[in-house]
Design a protein around this nucleic acid. Sequence first.
DNA 1: TTGTACGCGTTATCAT
DNA 2: ATGATAACGCGTACAA
Lengths: 329, 329
Amino acid sequence: MVTTLKDVAEKAGVSVKTVSRVVNNQGEISAETREHVAAVLDELGYRPNALARGLVSGKSATVALIIPQITDPFFPEVMLGVDSVARAHGYNVFLCNTEDDPARELEYIDILAGKRVDGIILCGSRLNAVQLAEVAKQHRVSILSSRNPPSSAVIRIPGEAGLFATTRHLTERGHARIGHIGLRAPDEHDRLEGYERALKEAGLPLDAKWVRWIPRVNIEAAYTAAKSLLTEAPEITAVSCYNDLAAIGTMRAAAELGRRLPDDLAITGFDDIAMASLVSPPLTTIRVLRYQLGERVMQLLLKVIASDGKLEQREQVDIELIVRRSSGG
Amino acid sequence: MVTTLKDVAEKAGVSVKTVSRVVNNQGEISAETREHVAAVLDELGYRPNALARGLVSGKSATVALIIPQITDPFFPEVMLGVDSVARAHGYNVFLCNTEDDPARELEYIDILAGKRVDGIILCGSRLNAVQLAEVAKQHRVSILSSRNPPSSAVIRIPGEAGLFATTRHLTERGHARIGHIGLRAPDEHDRLEGYERALKEAGLPLDAKWVRWIPRVNIEAAYTAAKSLLTEAPEITAVSCYNDLAAIGTMRAAAELGRRLPDDLAITGFDDIAMASLVSPPLTTIRVLRYQLGERVMQLLLKVIASDGKLEQREQVDIELIVRRSSGG
DNA sequence: TTGTACGCGTTATCAT
DNA sequence: ATGATAACGCGTACAA
């Protein structure tokens, strides 16, 4: 079986506490006992039981990262950043994938609370504002979102500004009938607002039938939505999309409908995932530094934990328009 | 603070054990006590402490999935399959990303053992055969690999057969000078062997300078390796790559060197990730059903756990050659 | 049907 | 410098 402090203590002929001290490098211990105990420790292959430690200390050295879609390349890169900071501070990360399901998100939060995680990062949460506020009140949470959550510790991706930038880029290139592929999720409307603002500022009309919604972010859903959009509103000459995956689905639909890019249809995305520069034509998009985002949101969580959950902070993130050929740029 | 069984017991005026019984639906309890306790449970928002439970039961309801590269789209999809089966059986999954570093892999295994995970899935392990055997002996492990590990519970991706298939596809199309971009990792040589066998069977010579190694699987590394390969051995007319990411890096290098695909250079990959059909030209590759792979390797882990780590089993996976334009197909 | 007492492996308190 | 003992929150054996 697994060796415990007691096993080591018996074998070494000392008390449990002494062994504990050696393990944790704490208190004053004579060099010879230390060496002796260390030897036995090594011989028996002792490994501290994190469960017991957690029970006593009330800490689990574990945090959780909740994301909606692990297959969206955006999130793995965020995870990388989160993980690097977490590791540097002795934390392990539970990665929880909700498949865009708010119920699953709440279920995870419940389970994680039971596992006594020290903090939770909500990344692209699909909860509504009320749920989000409640969760942020009850748990130690830091949030990464392009929405504007009422909560207290947030890293904010400027979704409104991003869609404004991509859409304005299209209006500036002379497009007058611009569609939008958006994500239909609770309280998720800032990107739509950016799209609408760009149209308004350009003096262009809004038309509800130029907007299509996808229930989840993936290429397939966007492909379907875009096909319907382009079929029912063929007058459209450009589409600004919720993100890169949505844009890539739109590109596929366009290609299938015989529309050449970018001449017959201009398309923009959001995120600048690796795929964006690999597809043909390369995708005009908004660059977001995902790894750094992950680092920052984890650093924020560390502060939240240190502040005992009382921290109020809101950080904004820089974005940059990357013009490539998909928009005729 | 957090409410415990004791808090509930005091408030409800019953014993701790009675509350415990209500929580776990066990033993005979009078309907009225049950209701009463349930009400208090609810009122106080009781949530079992998984740490304490784990300490008593010796189980943590947690497993771990160790992968080398979360940014390789292959792995998130495996994760999805693992997670679905894990959830269905009441397990949470720790996702551990090693960045291709064997030392980090061992470190994770150590930490996970400390957290008393009930089992570990090694997916694309970078450990050498000796280390792998040792880990499999000491822990409850199921393995997903294209290598041929000596261990006992393995789902095997036929890497040799896959590279044989892609490379033979190239020889059949008349290519006589075929390069290979391989992964340099411990005991990782079965894909190279597939490549070599295809050349031999076609009566073609092997040439060490037609093979380049990447230290890690990512587009950038492959781009660099391919550029060197195509520059120093411009006589090559085709490249069969370790996997799709390597192939995509190779495509980029080829494009930059002014070689048109597939006429000036044919390229094949492995995995059939989403990107493979999106790049231009679409990539000829080997299809692997990643979600199913994840399900199977988690199911295997369940068996390993049930067998107390004694299970011996080795499953093979089906693959399929997908011919697209990158190979001239 | 319900309760008491103990143990899980560790850390912390207070002695010695 | 070292050790005995009591927590931590829960489950299990055994009583009542």
